[in-house]
């Protein structure tokens, strides 16, 4: 067990380690802000969504459901599936926390576990204390909020032709996250191709037209990931290894 006298496990060190994450979040959340406004949210609603959720893919799906007046069940299921990976990260990170972390601290700091916060915490050469983790979450949270504010405000005042193009930016980022990983893992490439095919089938084959677009997203992803993990023959390289090789990670 490390304690707080270890220089690496301090608030200041956490803040420092969070700078790069915060800068990355600025641009992703800017795109999210633009998209949220184009889905029909006000600028302050977009900011509130970011403040309360701190996650990219889940928020993109969430504002889509809000804009389409989807059901609350749709909202819950889409958030569950898209964000279920956080449960696994929380379980892993929980084993690396030190004794300074009370149940109350956990309940509070659990909010800030994103892909990048998790990645940096797991890479640290010391146990994770409450000061370090809160420092690490600090700047990325504000970067995420500020980026959303900028995107949403600009999205509200810029001409429509510009904002419709800008709202495509977040999909570009999604591609930038997925594609490099498919080059490193054939298994993930297959999963991604299946996800594309299933998504198109569920959206455009008329017998599936009773399924909403948001459910189609979730169903396609779950089936594709399930086939990749349980049906395809075993791969030598695990998915975790491949994703660790990836330079781009998503929030």
């Amino acid at each position: 067990m490390a304690n707080n006298s270890v220089s690496g496990n301090t608030w200041a060190r956490g803040v420092k380690d969070g700078v790069a994450i915060a800068l990355g979040y600025l641009s992703v959340s800017f795109s999210f802000g633009i998209l949220a406004v184009s889905c029909g949210l006000n600028w302050w609603q977009a900011v509130l969504v970011s403040v309360c959720n701190l996650t990219s893919a889940g928020q993109v799906a969430g504002v889509g459901i809000m804009g389409a007046s989807g059901s609350l069940m749709e909202m819950i299921i889409s958030q569950l599936v898209i964000n279920i990976r956080y449960s696994l990260m929380s379980v892993s990170l929980s084993q690396k926390t030190d004794s300074s972390m009370t149940l109350f601290n956990r309940a509070l700091l659990g909010f800030g576990i994103t892909d990048e916060i998790f990645g940096v915490s797991m890479a640290a050469d010391h146990d994770i204390g409450k000061h370090y983790l809160s420092g690490l979450i600090f700047l990325p949270f504000w970067g995420w909020t500020l980026g959303t504010l900028l995107g949403a405000v600009l999205g509200s005042i810029l001409p429509e032709r510009l904002t419709t193009s800008l709202s495509i930016g977040i999909y570009g980022m999604f591609i930038a996250i997925v594609l490099p990983v498919t080059r490193k893992s054939k298994r993930i490439l297959i999963v991604v191709m299946m996800s594309v095919i299933l998504s198109l089938i569920l959206r455009y084959v008329s017998i599936f037209s009773f399924i909403s677009g948001n459910f189609a997203t979730v169903i396609s992803a779950v089936i594709a990931a399930f086939i990749g993990a349980f049906i395809l023959p075993d791969d030598t390289k695990s998915a975790t290894e491949a994703t660790q090789l990836s330079s781009n990670k998503e929030i």
């Binding site: 892909d115 998504s199 695990s238």
Partner: peptide
Amino acid sequence: QNFFDYIPYAVLTSMTVP
């Protein structure tokens, strides 16, 4: 574990296409 590792990529893909 693999299933949970694949989910984010599968989700981002089905969110992007179409």
